[in-house]
Design a protein around this nucleic acid. Structure first.
Lengths: 215, 215
DNA sequence: TAGATTGTTAATCGATTAACAATC
DNA sequence: TAGATTGTTAATCGATTAACAATC
């Protein structure tokens, strides 16, 4: 808020920086220059310095960047120094897979509820949670101040459920449904459109092989 | 190949165009102008026309674009007029969720095998497939000319398995593992880094709320 | 101190938007 | 024909890269 707006491109690169710095930390590397990091990551040193300097000076002339310090700072920028609470809306295969995925918890993302409308699923145990009826989701979010709703529903289900969720005081939606959610400005949306990702792959596959389209 | 290189930004927008055109088709809309589409999609009409014109003239002055024709053409550009064969490498929660996801099949993406190294999983039925030992994956890819390997493995597993897969003649990798694969140029990679997506969401959440970082 | 490397300004490159002539 | 709307060129904007003075 106090800083100038950071571009989407820069933000998208932060998690990757964090990953490489984590690896360096694990290797016991103490400091790294933008140049050495650029070689590892296959980006320009200039971009690395520009990116970091959006958030203030993390390095030292003649020395480079302290790996642990930089790792921690980028973690803070990404909000990984706080815990975050989540519920999963839609307990199909993908919803259950996300609920079972332990690594989110390690990063401080706590899954506190999982919901579905299918009576066949309600009551089923997923990890340490029981799948509950979707009708109770909004109330749970409100009472527990849940920050993030993970939408893992089919397209049709998503649009019908979204109204309730929006009015529950949810702060962000991690959207796996194949729809563009039209939400109030103060609700954050991050989309994961798997089928679009697969189509991009298909495009590259198609344009790469010799068999050029006749039209 | 014959055309000038299309930028990544344009390619990324194609699946979204396809989705909106599919919706219009379902609504029975016969033709649409770049302006009307721009209003629906919240992009500029100029961008729409520029994007389409990378692939040739799909429209008609004074008329606009024929919805069904444009839908089909973008589908062809994305390679959705062919079938594509896939195997899933890693039969954990995410691998099984993807295997069970019916919509890929509708688009012509056929999952023909699912592999894991965990003896507890091998033999388990997932949809119409049985989880097989990972040691047989490369051979299966080679014999059946499989195009796409879906990597749904933990980081450590991914790096150890990737060598075999690369030498099997695979054409593309849909990578869900948290690593940057270092592959020969002729193998296409499309990454889906879920944890990076969640971190971006976390960033927005953190920078949006009043509690600005002290540093 | 001399060498290394940052932080930052300036130059370049590419992508988006605007404008309009071509044409259905 | 007149009106609408594309295809395409030109202008603008933003992001990336290069360069270098500041400084550890």
């Amino acid at each position: 808020m106090s800083e100038r707006k950071i571009s989407q491109a820069v933000i998208s690169r932060l998690p990757r920086y964090l990953r490489y710095l984590g690896d360096l930390k694990d290797e016991g590397v103490e400091r790294i220059s933008s140049h050495d990091l650029s070689v590892r990551m296959h980006v320009t040193a200039s971009q690395i310095r520009q990116d970091f300097n959006h958030f203030g000076g993390f390095g030292q002339q003649g020395y480079g960047y302290n790996v642990v310090y930089l790792y921690d700072e980028i973690g803070k920028i990404l909000g990984l120094d706080h815990k975050h609470t989540m519920v999963i809306i839609g307990a199909g295969n993908l919803g259950q897979a996300l609920a079972n995925y332990m690594n989110f918890e390690k990063r401080g993302f706590l899954i506190l509820g999982i919901y579905d409308k299918d009576p066949a699923l309600i009551g089923k145990q997923v990890r340490n949670l029981e799948i509950e009826d979707i009708s109770g989701a909004a109330d749970f979010i409100r009472k527990n101040n849940i920050e993030i709703a993970v939408l893992t529903l089919p397209k049709a289900g998503a649009t019908s459920v979204i109204g309730d969720i929006v009015n529950s005081g949810i702060k962000a939606i991690w959207n796996f449904a194949h729809v563009d959610l039209d939400l109030p400005d103060d609700i954050i949306v991050e989309n994961v459109h798997l089928s679009e990702s697969l189509m991009k792959l298909s495009y590259k596959l198609t344009s790469a092989d010799g068999t050029e389209r006749i039209n």
